[in-house]
Protein backbone atom coordinates (compact mmCIF):
# COMPACT_ATOMS: atom_id res chain seq x y z
CA UNK A 1 0.00 0.00 0.00
CA UNK A 2 2.69 2.43 1.07
CA UNK A 3 4.79 1.30 -1.82
CA UNK A 4 2.15 1.99 -4.42
CA UNK A 5 1.43 5.37 -2.87
CA UNK A 6 5.12 6.23 -3.06
CA UNK A 7 5.21 4.92 -6.62
CA UNK A 8 2.34 7.17 -7.69
CA UNK A 9 3.90 10.23 -6.06
CA UNK A 10 7.34 9.61 -7.54
CA UNK A 11 5.85 8.75 -10.91
CA UNK A 12 4.03 12.08 -10.97
CA UNK A 13 7.21 13.91 -10.01
CA UNK A 14 9.15 12.16 -12.80
CA UNK A 15 6.56 13.08 -15.39
CA UNK A 16 6.21 16.67 -14.20
CA UNK A 17 9.97 17.20 -14.23
CA UNK A 18 10.32 15.57 -17.64
CA UNK A 19 7.71 17.97 -19.01
CA UNK A 20 9.61 20.78 -17.28
CA UNK A 21 12.81 19.81 -19.14
CA UNK A 22 11.07 20.20 -22.46
CA UNK A 23 9.16 23.40 -21.75
CA UNK A 24 11.78 25.51 -20.03
CA UNK A 25 13.27 28.24 -22.22
CA UNK A 26 16.42 28.61 -20.13
CA UNK A 27 18.78 25.65 -20.70
CA UNK A 28 20.07 25.72 -17.10
CA UNK A 29 16.54 25.33 -15.74
CA UNK A 30 16.05 22.41 -18.13
CA UNK A 31 19.22 20.81 -16.82
CA UNK A 32 18.08 21.21 -13.22
CA UNK A 33 14.75 19.62 -14.06
CA UNK A 34 16.63 16.77 -15.72
CA UNK A 35 18.62 16.19 -12.53
CA UNK A 36 15.36 16.02 -10.60
CA UNK A 37 13.99 13.51 -13.13
CA UNK A 38 17.07 11.31 -12.74
CA UNK A 39 16.94 11.37 -8.94
CA UNK A 40 13.22 10.56 -8.88
CA UNK A 41 13.89 7.65 -11.24
CA UNK A 42 16.45 6.38 -8.73
CA UNK A 43 13.70 6.30 -6.11
CA UNK A 44 11.58 4.20 -8.46
CA UNK A 45 14.48 1.74 -8.78
CA UNK A 46 14.68 1.45 -5.01
CA UNK A 47 10.96 0.66 -4.93
CA UNK A 48 11.76 -2.17 -7.34
CA UNK A 49 14.40 -3.51 -4.91
CA UNK A 50 17.22 -2.54 -7.25
CA UNK A 51 19.38 -0.57 -4.85
CA UNK A 52 22.56 -0.99 -6.87
CA UNK A 53 20.98 0.42 -10.02
CA UNK A 54 19.55 3.28 -7.99
CA UNK A 55 22.98 4.15 -6.61
CA UNK A 56 24.53 3.98 -10.07
CA UNK A 57 21.73 6.13 -11.44
CA UNK A 58 22.42 8.86 -8.89
CA UNK A 59 26.19 8.71 -9.26
CA UNK A 60 26.42 8.42 -13.04
CA UNK A 61 23.41 10.31 -14.35
CA UNK A 62 22.47 12.80 -11.66
CA UNK A 63 26.16 13.24 -10.82
CA UNK A 64 28.68 12.87 -13.61
CA UNK A 65 26.55 13.26 -16.73
CA UNK A 66 24.62 16.23 -15.44
CA UNK A 67 27.75 18.02 -14.27
CA UNK A 68 29.06 17.69 -17.81
CA UNK A 69 25.78 18.98 -19.19
CA UNK A 70 25.81 22.06 -17.01
CA UNK A 71 29.50 22.66 -17.75
CA UNK A 72 28.89 22.55 -21.49
CA UNK A 73 25.89 24.84 -21.23
CA UNK A 74 27.92 27.37 -19.23
CA UNK A 75 31.04 27.08 -21.40
CA UNK A 76 29.12 27.52 -24.63
CA UNK A 77 27.20 30.35 -22.98
CA UNK A 78 23.89 29.20 -24.42
CA UNK A 79 21.44 32.04 -24.06
CA UNK A 80 17.72 31.79 -23.69
CA UNK A 81 16.29 30.16 -26.76
CA UNK A 82 16.09 32.72 -29.54
CA UNK A 83 12.80 34.31 -30.40
CA UNK A 84 13.01 32.71 -33.80
CA UNK A 85 13.11 29.24 -32.29
CA UNK A 86 10.10 30.09 -30.16
CA UNK A 87 7.95 30.68 -33.22
CA UNK A 88 5.82 27.77 -34.37
CA UNK A 89 7.21 27.17 -37.77
CA UNK A 90 6.16 23.56 -37.79
CA UNK A 91 2.48 23.86 -36.96
CA UNK A 92 1.53 20.84 -39.00
CA UNK A 93 4.13 18.74 -37.24
CA UNK A 94 2.91 19.89 -33.83
CA UNK A 95 -0.72 19.12 -34.60
CA UNK A 96 -0.01 15.67 -35.98
CA UNK A 97 2.37 14.89 -33.11
CA UNK A 98 -0.30 15.78 -30.53
CA UNK A 99 -2.95 13.81 -32.41
CA UNK A 100 -0.80 10.69 -32.84
CA UNK A 101 0.46 10.92 -29.27
CA UNK A 102 -3.09 11.02 -27.91
CA UNK A 103 -4.03 8.12 -30.19
CA UNK A 104 -1.13 6.07 -28.84
CA UNK A 105 -2.14 6.87 -25.28
CA UNK A 106 -5.72 5.84 -26.04
CA UNK A 107 -4.61 2.52 -27.54
CA UNK A 108 -2.27 1.75 -24.66
CA UNK A 109 -4.98 2.76 -22.19
CA UNK A 110 -7.60 0.52 -23.78
CA UNK A 111 -5.20 -2.42 -23.91
CA UNK A 112 -4.11 -1.95 -20.29
CA UNK A 113 -7.68 -1.69 -19.03
CA UNK A 114 -8.96 -4.63 -21.00
CA UNK A 115 -6.23 -7.15 -20.32
CA UNK A 116 -4.16 -8.15 -17.33
CA UNK A 117 -0.58 -7.33 -18.19
CA UNK A 118 1.65 -9.78 -16.48
CA UNK A 119 5.37 -10.09 -16.76
CA UNK A 120 7.26 -13.28 -16.07
CA UNK A 121 8.80 -13.73 -12.66
CA UNK A 122 12.47 -14.53 -12.86
CA UNK A 123 14.53 -16.65 -10.50
CA UNK A 124 15.71 -13.64 -8.49
CA UNK A 125 12.75 -12.61 -6.37
CA UNK A 126 13.13 -9.69 -3.92
CA UNK A 127 13.50 -12.10 -1.00
CA UNK A 128 16.17 -14.09 -2.78
CA UNK A 129 17.96 -10.90 -3.73
CA UNK A 130 17.95 -9.50 -0.20
CA UNK A 131 19.44 -12.78 0.97
CA UNK A 132 22.43 -12.62 -1.37
CA UNK A 133 22.77 -8.89 -1.72
CA UNK A 134 21.97 -6.80 -4.71
CA UNK A 135 25.44 -5.68 -5.68
CA UNK A 136 26.96 -9.14 -5.36
CA UNK A 137 24.27 -10.54 -7.62
CA UNK A 138 24.80 -7.93 -10.32
CA UNK A 139 28.54 -8.50 -10.10
CA UNK A 140 28.18 -12.25 -10.30
CA UNK A 141 25.94 -12.08 -13.34
CA UNK A 142 28.21 -9.58 -15.09
CA UNK A 143 31.21 -11.88 -14.70
CA UNK A 144 29.47 -15.18 -15.45
CA UNK A 145 26.40 -15.17 -17.67
CA UNK A 146 26.88 -11.74 -19.17
CA UNK A 147 30.67 -11.64 -19.34
CA UNK A 148 30.61 -11.44 -23.14
CA UNK A 149 28.30 -8.40 -23.44
CA UNK A 150 30.22 -6.86 -20.54
CA UNK A 151 33.51 -7.21 -22.40
CA UNK A 152 32.24 -5.98 -25.75
CA UNK A 153 30.88 -2.88 -24.02
CA UNK A 154 34.55 -1.91 -23.76
CA UNK A 155 34.85 -1.89 -27.56
CA UNK A 156 31.78 0.32 -27.68
CA UNK A 157 33.30 2.81 -25.25
CA UNK A 158 36.63 2.72 -27.08
CA UNK A 159 34.97 3.47 -30.41
CA UNK A 160 33.06 6.34 -28.79
CA UNK A 161 36.25 7.83 -27.32
CA UNK A 162 38.08 7.65 -30.64
CA UNK A 163 35.09 9.25 -32.33
CA UNK A 164 34.87 12.08 -29.83
CA UNK A 165 38.57 12.86 -30.22
CA UNK A 166 38.45 12.83 -34.01
CA UNK A 167 35.43 15.09 -34.21
CA UNK A 168 36.57 17.51 -31.52
CA UNK A 169 40.32 17.76 -32.15
CA UNK A 170 41.33 21.27 -33.04
CA UNK A 171 43.80 21.39 -35.88
CA UNK A 172 42.75 20.46 -39.39
CA UNK A 173 45.40 19.13 -41.73
CA UNK A 174 45.94 20.91 -45.05
Amino acid sequence: MLESLLFIIMGLIVITCAIGVVFQKNPIYSAVFLIQTMVSLAVLYILLHAQFVAAVQVMVYAGAVMVLFVFVIMLLNVQRADQELGKDRLIFQKVSAIFLGLLLFAVIGIVTVRSVLQGTKGEYTPEHMNEIGNTQLVGKLLFTDYVFPFEIASILLFAAIIGAIILAKKELKE
Binding site: Y146, F148, P149, I152, A153, I155, L156, A159, G163, L167
Partner: peptide, 19 residues
Protein backbone atom coordinates in the same frame (compact mmCIF):
# COMPACT_ATOMS: atom_id res chain seq x y z
CA UNK B 1 22.09 -14.95 -29.74
CA UNK B 2 21.02 -12.60 -26.98
CA UNK B 3 19.26 -9.28 -27.43
CA UNK B 4 21.91 -7.60 -25.25
CA UNK B 5 24.74 -8.77 -27.52
CA UNK B 6 22.77 -7.71 -30.57
CA UNK B 7 22.12 -4.29 -29.07
CA UNK B 8 25.78 -3.74 -28.15
CA UNK B 9 26.89 -4.85 -31.62
CA UNK B 10 24.42 -2.48 -33.21
CA UNK B 11 25.70 0.39 -31.08
CA UNK B 12 29.36 -0.33 -31.85
CA UNK B 13 28.52 -0.30 -35.54
CA UNK B 14 26.36 2.82 -35.33
CA UNK B 15 28.77 4.92 -33.27
CA UNK B 16 31.61 4.15 -35.66
CA UNK B 17 29.37 5.14 -38.56
CA UNK B 18 28.25 8.41 -36.95
CA UNK B 19 31.88 9.43 -36.68
Amino acid sequence: ADLITIFLGLEIMSISLYV
